[in-house]
Design a binder for these strands. Sequence first.
DNA 1: TGTAGCATGACAACCCTTAAAGATGTAGCC
DNA 2: GGCTACATCTTTAAGGGTTGTCATGCTACA
Lengths: 325, 325
Amino acid sequence: MTTLKDVAKIAGVTVTTVSRVLNNRGYISHDTRSKVMSAMKTLDYQPNEVARSLIFQRSRIIGLIVPSVSHPFFGELANAIEYEASKRGYKILLANSRHDADKENSYLDMLKRNKVDGIILASRTVETKPFLNVNLPLLSFDRELSPDIPMVSADNTEGGRLVARHLIARGCKNLLYIGGSGSVRQYSNNRGNGFIEACEQARMPCTVYETEEVSFNSQQYEASIGKALDAHPKVDGIFASSDVIAAQVIRMLSIRGKRVPQDVKIVGFDDVQIASLLNPALTTVRQPVEAMAIQMLELLERKMKGAPAPAKTIMPVELIIRDST
Amino acid sequence: MTTLKDVAKIAGVTVTTVSRVLNNRGYISHDTRSKVMSAMKTLDYQPNEVARSLIFQRSRIIGLIVPSVSHPFFGELANAIEYEASKRGYKILLANSRHDADKENSYLDMLKRNKVDGIILASRTVETKPFLNVNLPLLSFDRELSPDIPMVSADNTEGGRLVARHLIARGCKNLLYIGGSGSVRQYSNNRGNGFIEACEQARMPCTVYETEEVSFNSQQYEASIGKALDAHPKVDGIFASSDVIAAQVIRMLSIRGKRVPQDVKIVGFDDVQIASLLNPALTTVRQPVEAMAIQMLELLERKMKGAPAPAKTIMPVELIIRDST
DNA sequence: TGTAGCATGACAACCCTTAAAGATGTAGCC
DNA sequence: GGCTACATCTTTAAGGGTTGTCATGCTACA
């Protein structure tokens, strides 16, 4: 490994001088600068970021905890966050919590030990307690953890309302909401709340079916959806709380001989890539992934500077109408 | 931030002793050990991994370069790699190259500067040259870069053969292969080669349609697929080189009034989550993502130890038959 | 009494880089 | 000639932790 010392030896100066050339500090003669530059080039010198992290007490690394990047939504979110982070000069240390509170906690410790500059928590299992002694800039996605941890989320409530109004406008009379994980307290539950609220406002009957969506792609889950459909055969409009669930609903409907959108209309949530690939293409609520990523990094950076950040940032959603309604 | 010094002060010993307790070195009395332990607990001390990385010249961080974790296959692959890495005590620094050679090169530099212990390159743009002076343990997925860079890949050739035989066995007479990115030299091109080879062996006519799949989810790409379908209206069996492409093909067929699998049978590749969610559920070739992740980490770890590793590891694939054929 | 083994401390060097303070040299000015 | 001012580079300490050497004190055993 080439170090400053090697460069200094080749250039015939001390390491300090080389460091000053690198960081443009103090007086450096034109002659010395070019000598150092050429020495760095011949040795293909790369500064050791580990040593710099130790000195500056900051690593320019952000820890990202998600349930799993294999889930389409979190894959897209992680991608957007990494993209925005790299624009701002940060790197991403990735942690997939896999819905496991223990794993999540040990990841938090790991990130602490590795002196990340901040953490984005887009996971859903940890209780609030452990955060009380994580004295690191922290930002959460979709969950209110504590007043001093800024939360960024899409406007799930409004999304739910948009869906209800849209299905009603399309002539649906028997609505069903299929939710993903009712027990966990998180902001995305509001998509169901908004839906129900708008239904009530329109005096439209609406059934709620909440499931325990522990693993995202299980046979069990499809069976559970099937049960919900069989229990409510007259349903003609369905709001699934994610596009993945919507895909499963479409399949289950198809197996039961129901046509989408003629017999049953269906709306998803997230607008991940598969939404437009489904057959029929899925009407869904788009979460502004890129904008949320920008906002998250902006707020986390503020926190890292010690500046105040709003406790709650709700980003606008958009109804994307395709062929399933 | 609490350091060893603070712990030593509380425990009434020197930093040397604390370090010894931490690393189980030399003689430590039961008494001292428990004193140090409790001091660490009260201060919630976490060793500074940055400082340790500097000393040991290893960070236990692995750099992972993928085109994008938002692509279903690479999301699942990244998830499996991170899972296997964390089991072995490694962390993952994530880089999405976005099919951009410049970005990929700058990520490589970044990973070098940050002293990662090794790099897994699952991206597809860089030429071989830059690797010649990356003297870091390197492992590539799906691409042969140089003899001393181990490659891990699924058996794409065999996958292609399996698909051809399956479609023929299902009675297809007019086969079409829709490929993703013919121009880039990578191992996954073999899925097309295997397909064509098996078709020729069975004396079955087979059309090849290679496209430039630059961005994965574009309207353009769908239009391009549509053109291919219109140019070959008699096609009754299609092999799409990925599940995402297959999803688009299914949609394009549906728009043209063709039924799957009655009129046209279709097979994908990868077996990502969406394959089973599509309507109809997609017959596809499963890449053994978990097994490949394990293999990649195993080989990378060997490389990191300086041990030899096979240049080429081809993992078995499996045809998953669902409703699209 | 000598020596071996155990338990700890003190000190320094090291990993690589940075930065404040110090040393040296040169030019300009009164 | 003596002084300031500035340019240029070096010395030294620091960041947090590990490790080797040496010194010290204690107990146990032959």
